[in-house]
Design a protein around this nucleic acid. Structure first.
Length: 253
DNA sequence: CCCAAGTCCTGGTTGC
DNA sequence: TGCAACCAGGACTTGG
């Protein structure tokens, strides 16, 4: 159970605590901690990187936008420093007792490795008026998809971001489900998308940005049909798509 | 001035 | 008409 507690209370538990497990849930990083001594409860550090957050292990230099640092010891007693950097301050940390930050309970299944299928997607899409783009960004349906991957997924699925959820045929839903898993898998295989800030815990950049088909390519030619890619703002987010092979009208097929 | 990887909050709209 | 669910857009923040 989640218990209310004051920051200074949590602070007093941290020294001597052990990281008992780590997990990723959607875009959240979760550390399970057990306090030192004989206490049996657990507490959690829930981390969200926001847009520009970085989590670094033993960084070579203090960096420019350090927000917090955890000093730890490894199994052999070697020092381990975990630093959180975040230029735009959109990242979040939550320290809670008993359960992770409450917002995690609201997340849909993990879009990449979660237990869901085209049937689940069909049920979630059914009857909704919102755009496909807004749907993919809404972490309550599937968790883990952001603005870059949603545009890429929709291009590969040949679906217009402006289409309404309820307008998809079952063939289109199956296609979308396949591309969600495939594109996120590619992103992970290529170690992420380093447009400007993203690095892994070792400070290394990913490679996915080299394989982008639409994101950041407004006005350039579609790799599939050669038409000019266009930009629209959909539910407040910049959205790039091909007006030719991602048509607004449902394709007759 | 424009734009940017995310989420929360507010206020308006839709439909039962 | 009432109400809840749904949905779009602004706020937040720093920098290129």
């Amino acid at each position: 159970m989640l218990r209310d507690c004051r920051p200074e209370q949590l602070k007093s538990w941290l020294p001597g605590a052990k990281v008992s497990s780590t997990e990723r849930v959607g875009k959240f990083i979760l550390l399970e901690l057990k306090p030192g001594g004989s206490s049996s409860f657990v507490f959690y550090l829930t981390i969200h990187l926001g847009m520009t957050g970085q989590l670094l292990i033993n960084p070579r230099d203090p960096g420019k936008h350090g927000r917090f640092v955890f000093e730890m010891r490894g199994r052999e007693g070697e020092p381990i420093c975990l630093q959180f950097r975040d230029m735009r301050k959109f990242g979040r940390l939550h320290l809670t007792v008993g359960t992770p930050a409450p917002r995690l309970a609201l997340l849909g299944p993990d879009a990449w490795v979660g237990e869901w299928d085209a049937g689940y997607l069909a049920r979630e899409l059914c009857g909704r008026r919102a755009s496909l783009k807004a749907f993919l960004l809404d972490q309550r349906h599937l968790s883990g998809i952001g603005n870059i991957y949603s545009d890429e997924i929709l291009w590969w699925s040949r679906l217009c971001p402006l289409r309404s959820c309820g307008s998809l045929s079952s063939d289109e839903i199956v296609r979308l489900a396949q591309e969600i898993r495939r594109i996120l898998g590619e992103g992970v295989r290529l170690l992420g998308c380093s447009i400007s800030d993203f690095v892994d815990t070792q400070g290394s950049s990913g490679e996915f940005q080299k394989w982008l088909r639409v994101y950041g390519r407004q006005g350039k030619k579609c790799f599939r049909c050669g038409a000019r890619l266009v930009r629209a703002v959909v539910s407040g987010r910049g959205t790039i798509y091909c007006p030719e092979c991602q048509p607004k009208n449902a394709s007759p097929e």
